[in-house]
């Protein structure tokens, strides 16, 4: 049986199981163990997640088009985007590093955005099939979330080490900031998503 059917709720902060019906108190119920506000479901999470997903798509465009960093040398200034960074590693034969950057900076953000959209649509349409598979997809987006930060760190480390005054120097460029925003918005979106909504749909089917 699900907790919601038994008037029970699990505190999202301390995981205490609380029976809500026992206390007809006024206003919002609070967890007796840790004091957090209790709610059966977070129905507003859908709007929040949609907003963050759309924001991340908007940030994703300049993140890919604008350079991540400027490399100043005596030979001139060269600007690196995410894709040109991957291509550089391919050309110089560092295939493993090229793969790491390609997966962390291109595959991971796109996968996260697509999975979140798929989950949002399926919850809103009331799709009932494969809740277990959808939950796995969700946990996967949560797990891979922070790994896209690799490219931001690479920029940060490069500018720290290649800093020889006016002649040879690496500077961060605006693409890096937009990319950071993509990572942060998709991470918060994944956190806000209430997985239990997927299972509610499946339950409606079980009830007939």
């Amino acid at each position: 049986m699900r907790a919601i059917e038994a008037d029970m709720v699990s505190c999202h902060a301390c995981h205490a199981t609380v029976r809500i019906g026992e206390d007809p108190g006024k206003g919002e119920p609070h967890c007796p163990r840790c004091g957090e506000a209790l709610a059966f479901r977070d129905y507003t999470s859908m709007q929040t997640v949609w907003a963050l997903v759309i924001a991340s798509i908007v940030f994703y465009i300049p993140a890919n088009l604008l350079p991540m960093m400027h490399v100043h040398t005596f030979a001139g200034t060269q600007s690196d985007t995410i894709l040109s960074g991957v291509l550089y590693f391919m050309e110089t034969g560092s295939y493993l590093i090229a793969a790491v950057i390609f997966i962390a900076s291109i595959v991971v953000p796109i996968t996260k955005i697509l999975i979140l959209i798929y989950l949002l649509v399926s919850v809103q349409k009331g799709t009932i099939d494969n809740p277990k598979k959808k939950q796995k997809l969700y946990l996967f987006t949560e797990l891979i979330g922070k790994w896209s930060m690799v490219d931001v760190y690479v920029v940060a480390i490069m500018i720290a080490l290649v800093h020889f005054g006016g002649l040879t120097q690496i500077e961060a460029a605006s693409g890096a900031t937009f990319f950071l925003l993509v990572v942060v918005t998709t991470m918060i979106a994944a956190m806000k998503f209430d997985v239990r909504l997927i299972w509610d749909n499946a339950q409606k089917e079980r009830d007939g």
Binding site: M1, R2, A3, I4, A6, M8, V9, S10, H12, H15, A16, T17, V18, R19, I20, E22, D23, P29, P32, R33, P131, Q135, L139, V195, R196, I198, W199, D200
Partner: peptide
Amino acid sequence: MGTHTHIVVCHECDEIV
């Protein structure tokens, strides 16, 4: 309101365990 330490509610699917 009472807490039940031996009854756990799954945070993913809301099942009472």
